[in-house]
Structures are given as structure tokens and as C-alpha cells.
Design a protein around this nucleic acid. Structure first.
Lengths: 143, 143
DNA sequence: CTAAATAGAACTTATTTAGTACTATAAAGG
DNA sequence: CCTTTATAGTACTAAATAAGTTCTATTTAG
């Protein structure tokens, strides 16, 4: 099954919660409470999203996290890339040179690039705001 | 990283080899030789693709496998679905009811359906023949 | 100086995926 | 009608990956 990791899934859930009050600083443990996800995992995801520039953090007492940009400026692709790594269906895609046992004899070198590009651009065109606000409609218009 | 499994990747490679001589019966061990992939794995994939109606098989001496349809009638989606299961990015998508720990509190129920549909239709629109014959060009026209 | 928070890395466990082995069934040919 | 060569199907094992946890360091308000 082609799928994103649970981390990326949780990440979107956490960002959805943060987007409800874009101005408020929220702590890791608070977000764990409201989302129902395990606290250490939430903390880990928040750190990663901060490192990727999607969230801003404040340390110390009264610290916490908030969105760096508004939800309509955050592409879904950025969230997935931050938590899951690059979006590409196969190991032997553009630029990835490692770990293909049959590269020598493989007749498919580079053939997946087009498919990758297609999926990538679909995820780049969609923002967090669109994902949250009405689910299916907006997306299907683009298809 | 969003990715298809190695099985689906190998599957395409094997189908590519079969597509070179669409009329010929090819054995599992022969295909293992020409592709360089381990024989038991090739055999497993061939069985699965036969069960999915993508290949036709003949048992007994002089048996083997061949394509059920021509390469331009086989959608890439069918290959991936056969070997990897349904194409959906998240557990809690259309129809899938199991295994989402936070379903109760989750604010995203069904929100991924549009993204799934988009990716699925991209993979359904592309055939094995297109994937093989020129890689990137045709696909990018569709994007 | 203390308490409450994030930062970062290392480690362990769980889950998933890939690979292997074994048994059954079918067909061709002597 | 028996042997050989092939697929069909299932169950098991091992390896790779992902998820989750823990620990230490750093920052800041009071």
C-alpha cells in the first residue's frame, strides 16, 4: 500500500490543532492532551516541524510552538517531506543513486520520474488550509 | 518517504521483460535469469500477478507465464494494487475502517480522500506501455 | 536559582516487508 | 502410468524500517 507514515499523519493532525488558534503558543504536552497522541511522539514531531521551518518555537517557561505561516501558505508536500523525507515512489528516481541492486541490468532507469513529478506537484499545489477546510471538493476540482 | 514496495517495483521490471515478447511463454526461473532478481521472489510475484488477472499461466511441462493483455491495456495502478494493496495515503481513508487509534477525536476524518483520488487517477491513467516506452515525456504532458 | 519548557541525540521496541521453504496440483512425453 | 518440469498455494523466518522512549543539554521567566 502506497502510504505516508504515521508521523506525517500525526503531523497534519497536530498542525490542524495549531491552526485553530494561529496566534497562541501551545506546549507539546498541551497538544498531546488535545489530540490524544502520545506526548513523546508529539514532542518529536514538533521539533522536526520546527527544524523544517513550518513551526516557530519559544523556549523556557511559557514557551511553546506556533505556526510560522498561515495554513494557506503551508503546502501538504512540505509537511510530508519534513516528516517522511523526499516524495518519490522508487529508490532509483531522480538524483537518488544508492541502493538499487539491479541498476546495471535494469531497463527502467528514470522511468518513474514522471509519475513522481505528478504526485509531487499534486501535493505541492495543495495547502494545509485546503486539506482542513472541506476535504474533497477543492482537490477534485484540480484533478 | 512515500514509496511503492520493492515488490511492485520488481513487478514492473518483470512485466517489462514479458512485454518484450508478448506471445512467448516464459518460466519463473528464466525470468529470474534475465532480470537478475532472486528466483523465489520472481515466482511469488508471478503468482500474484496471475491471480490479479494481469498474467496468464500454463502449468506443467513447457508451462510458463505471458501477458493477459497488451502493455497499453495494463494500468500502472493495477500492478501496484495487485502487489501492494490499495492505493491510499492514510489508514482512515474511504472505506477503510480499521486501525486508527484516534478516530474518535480526529478532526481529519475523510479529508485525505481527495488527495488519494488524485494520485489514484494519475496511476490509473498511465499504462505499462507508457511507463516503458519513453519514461518522462508522456506523463508530463498529462500533468 | 528553580521550574518549565524546547533541542537534540541515542537507544529500544514494534511493525512491516521481503525472502524462503514446503506441499500440492497439473500437463507433457516416454 | 510414471517421471519430469512447471505453476498454485500456504506458512514460516529473517531483515529492514518506522515508531516510540529516554536521557542530557539549553533556554527563559519569575
Amino acid at each position: 500500500m502506497i502510504k505516508i507514515s504515521r508521523m506525517a499523519d500525526y503531523g497534519v493532525l497536530i498542525l490542524a490543532e495549531l491552526a485553530r488558534e494561529p496566534e497562541a503558543l501551545r506546549t507539546a504536552s498541551g497538544l498531546s492532551d488535545t489530540t490524544g497522541l502520545p506526548e513523546p511522539t508529539v514532542a518529536k514531531i514538533l521539533k522536526t516541524l520546527t527544524g523544517a521551518g513550518i513551526l516557530r518555537s519559544a523556549r523556557g517557561v511559557n514557551g511553546g510552538y506556533l505556526l510560522q505561516k498561515t495554513a494557506d501558505q503551508i503546502p501538504v508536500a512540505a509537511i510530508i517531506t519534513a516528516l517522511d523525507g523526499p516524495i518519490c515512489l522508487t529508490a532509483c528516481a531522480d538524483g537518488v543513486e544508492d541502493s538499487c541492486a539491479v541498476r546495471e541490468t535494469c531497463s527502467l532507469k528514470g522511468r518513474w520520474n514522471g509519475v513522481n513529478a505528478l504526485i509531487k506537484s499534486a501535493l505541492e499545489a495543495m495547502t494545509l488550509a485546503e486539506l482542513l477546510e472541506s476535504g474533497t471538493e477543492k482537490v477534485q476540482k484540480k484533478a
